[in-house]
Design a protein around this nucleic acid. Structure first.
Lengths: 328, 328
DNA sequence: GGTCGTTTTGAAAGCGCGTGCAAAAATGCG
DNA sequence: CGCATTTTTGCACGCGCTTTCAAAACGACC
């Protein structure tokens, strides 16, 4: 039955009041240097650490940030999560992880809000205005990643999908590819919609249109499946553009299985530039989605709003880049 | 300046005492059905939810569980994390995510303990006895995943590495492979050590020894690299056994780049059976490391110890299985 | 030494909630 | 209807900490 060491214990042992112990652990509090050191020393020997739960109850900040992410086992999500966690912990925050599967995002966020999180970073699901309002009502700033709410009013950071698609379209057009297919991801997904639209627009600029369109679920397996379908449909395709890298890698597999040479007979492009994209016998030509900068930007937004609640909402578009490898 | 709705507000609005509000939200508390419903209704309209931080302060349980994992972007880690999160949330826990990079595990766990976590699940780094004791002193049970402390005394769940290696050795020996190489992972890793030892032992049973051994860092990139080294060394290898799937996939790439046919000219085996192992033009023969059961077992252990602190520590070995695909 | 302006300190009031305890209300029974 | 039980309720305290506020200690300066 282990009893925690409390500030009272330290106070008694150090011969000071509990308030002093609190101040000793509060940077910038009014306390003499001598006493602070003394208290620290005593605390050390007793093995005392301020209870952050109790601290969170009084102060306005718990240091907890809700991080909502989709299926973690997807390469992009995992990659992003890794950077988010690093960024959070660098800023002294602690991530409360919520993995959303389906429509229970509201419920999960509510649960997180009950933990008095200082804020939330949402990189999955679709955030309704209602949810956003509820967060604001709880005093927890919300930052979206990879999706922006068109009604505005919510901080978001998202890569420049339009520019990415333009770059890909230009490259393929420049290579003289004419019969192009689009392999989209899960519908109702912001990334899917924006990339899809952007592609159509960009192709138009080159006088091209899609020969075929097909839809997967952003997974490599669906890339194999739908890619296979496209290749078997007798469409005589030049290129397959995929809504993300995972599916593109799947398409690459499908092509290899059929003995179709990439990039000579077929170009394949991805989006995100996940680490695995550079590997494999046929490295992927793709668009770099700068995960690290995205995470940093998200935290910057969060911090800014935490310090100045009245700030106007802001949408940060992080720059993308064409990564030329060999698949296209 | 949004003011949270507190139990007092609900009490006032419902014309009852604050204690009643508390009881209305405490399952099994002494309160009449009528009143509970009434309070719930009022709470609903006010948008009240019990503050879990405050609740955690009084009660012994915060519902927070520290989850320590290594590099999340690695497929296996991500996969495991996904299942852990699911399992935790199914049991009403909330994961506090700690990504350890380097030796600061102690520090991170200390920080988590300051949040009064109910327990910790550690799937990364090496846990010293000192750390374990500190956790126990804070009343937070520790459960290890994929590593067991040989001094014992700590709950752990880990797949049966020995049996896995036996199965692989038997298969390769049965195929008449004779010149085998081992591609190990990061040293000082429990998985690496146990799998390595187990392989040597298993091979001995078939009168075989390793022709070569090499070491990566569990990443696919290192698989490409070290696999390439092995293939270029003129060792005339029959088979390359890898300490995990990611490296095996890398080796597969390396072989493909060199035009070496798998499995005819070379067998490649992995370990874990991550989702990506089944994909690709050359599906991986590997050992299934049942992540889901692992996560479930970890939670069972955690719950058991939470309910009965005095319980003897237990090591659960989850069963593995040989997954026969085409790479070996 | 005394006065005034500065730190430095301790007492006490919360933060939002759970819960033991005793009072109040409801119920059962004769 | 009266009494003994049982259920339901409210009060008040405490969880571990932060933070006013006023008192105490300090130091400088005349």
């Amino acid at each position: 039955m282990p009893m925690r060491v409390t500030a009272d214990d330290v106070a008694r042992a150090a011969g000071v009041s509990r308030a002093m112990v609190s101040r000793a652990f509060t940077p910038g509090a009014s306390i003499s240097v001598r006493k602070r050191e003394h208290v620290h020393r005593v605390a050390q020997t007793l093995g005392y650490r301020p209870n952050l739960i109790a601290r969170g109850l009084t102060g306005q900040r718990t240091g907890l940030i809700a991080v909502v992410v989709g299926e973690i086992s997807r390469p992009y999500e995992a990659w992003l999560l890794e950077h988010l966690v690093k960024a959070l912990s660098a800023h002294g925050y602690q991530p409360l992880l919520l993995a959303v599967e389906g429509a229970n995002l509201t419920e999960m966020l509510d649960h997180a809000l009950a933990y008095q999180v200082d804020g939330a970073i949402v990189a999955a699901g679709s955030v309704s205005r209602e949810i956003a309002d509820r967060c604001r009502a709880s005093g927890a700033p919300l930052v979206l990643i990879g999706r922006v709410l068109d009604q505005g009013g919510i901080d978001a950071v998202c890569c420049d999908n339009r520019e990415g698609m333009r770059l890909l379209a230009a490259r393929l057009a420049g290579q003289g590819r004419r019969r192009l297919a689009w392999l989209g991801g899960t519908p109702d997904t912001f990334s899917d919609q924006e990339r899809d639209q952007a592609l159509e627009a960009a192709l138009l600029d080159h006088g091209l249109t899609l020969t075929a369109r097909r839809r997967g679920d952003f997974s490599q397996a669906s890339g194999v499946e739908e890619g296979g379908w496209l290749l078997d449909a007798g469409l005589d395709l030049d290129a397959i553009l995929c809504a993300n890298d995972a599916m593109a890698l799947g398409v690459l597999d499908a092509a290899a299985q059929r003995g179709i040479h990439v990039p000579d007979a077929l170009a394949v492009t991805g989006f995100d530039d996940i680490p695995a994209a550079a590997l494999g016998r046929c490295a992927l030509t793709t668009i770099r989605n700068p995960v690290n900068e995205t995470a940093q930007a998200a935290l910057r937004l969060l911090n800014a709003r935490l310090q100045t609640p009245g700030l106007a909402a802001q949408v940060v578009r992080v720059d993308v880049a064409l990564i030329e490898r060999i698949s296209a």
